[in-house]
Amino acid sequence: MTESELEVLAEIRRIAADELEWSGTVEPRHDLLKDLQLDSLGLTVLAVGLENRFRIRLSEEDAQGVRTVEDLARLVAQRAAAPRTPEVRP
């Protein structure tokens, strides 16, 4: 994992412990649903926490290719590194 992916992994671990009452370990190979037992609310809490920390937006389509903690860390690191589209405000 790259340095930025490790940074995302650390944030995933923090959210799991602090906000999702998860007392087990969180490893890159862990399946979000099967190993971390995340339900729809848990996934939303995780997504919102990552969006806040890395100032990104994640969508339903993003979730398609994401199964493990490592998949999620890679997606978030890529999104955080991408040039931000300027927000258009009326």
């Binding site: 939303t44 919102v48 969006e51 806040n52 100032r55 990104i56 937006r57």
Partner: peptide
């Protein structure tokens, strides 16, 4: 004040 993606919260 705390959340970056407010539209997600509106959707909820």
């Amino acid at each position: 004040t705390r959340h970056f993606n407010v539209e997600r919260l509106e959707d909820l």
